[in-house]
Nucleic acid binder design. Sequence first.
DNA 1: GGGTGATGCTGAG
DNA 2: TCAGCCTCACCCC
Length: 265
Amino acid sequence: MPEGHTIHRYARRHRQVLAGHELEVSSPQGRFTSGAARLDGRRLDDVDAYGKHLFYRFGDETLHVHLGLFGKFRTHRGTPPPPTPGTRLAMRNEQATVYLAGPTVCELLDPDREDALRSRLGPDPLATPRRSRAFTAALARRRIPIAAALLDQRVIAGIGNVYRAEILFLCGIDPQRPAADITADEAACVWATARRLLRAGLAENRIVTVTTRYVGVRRRADIPRHERLYVYKRAGRPCRRCGTVVVAGEAGGRKVWSCPTCQPR
DNA sequence: GGGTGATGCTGAG
DNA sequence: TCAGCCTCACCCC
C-alpha cells in the first residue's frame, strides 16, 4: 500500500478525525507501551507527512511512524472492533479510533533526530513541488541506474516500486540508464510526472496511471483493478501503447518492468 | 487452512 | 549483497 500518496492521505485523514482533541493512546500489542503512555491524554495538535514518514505533534512530543512494506492504519468511526493481536498503536477520541499494525517505525522523536531524519530525505513532490532542482542535482551525482535512484529516498522522497516503473514508462526512459546521464528535460519530465501521479493517487486513493483510452471505458473510476498500470507487474504482456512485450529487470534490489520500444536504451 | 508475496528499509558482512 | 523485520490479503488446495 504505502507509497507517498498513501502517507499524505493518512496525514490528512488523521488530522481530520483526531487532531484538536485529547486522545487515549495505548499499545494493545505491548510493543510501544512506554511511548503510548507518554502520549496518553495529550492533545494531538497536527499531523504532517514527508515522503513516506508521518509526524504526529502532541505538544512537545512527536510521534514518528513509517509503515514500511507491511504497515497499515485502520480508522473506525464510533465504537471500534477490538484491536487485532498485531495492533502496535491505538489512538482514540470520542468520534474515531485509529489502529496501527505492522509498522517498521513507531517511536517518539526528539527535534534533533527529526532534523537528522529530514536532512536525509530528498524533495517530496507532494510537499515541496518547486524543488525539482535539488532532484536534478541529486540525479547528476549518481552513476546508479535511474530506476535505483528513484527508490533512493535521498534523491526523491515518496516514490516506491509502482510509481518508479510507471514514471519511467511515461517519460520514455530505460530503467537501466545511469542517473547521471539523464538530461535536464528528462529529469524535468520525471519530476513533473511524479508530482502528477502522486497527486492523482492522493486524490483517488489508488494508483491509476493509464488513461481511459487505453482501457476502453468512459470514466477513470471504471478502470478495472488489473488495468490501472502500464508496465508494473505486466511482464510478458503487450505494451498498452505499442504492443511490444513488457519485460522485467532489476534495479535497486527490486524488480522493475518496462517496454523496450517505448523506453529505448 | 497453509503458503506466499507485497507499493520498504536497515544493518551486518 | 542479503537476511531480517513484521502483518495481512490473496491464492490454491
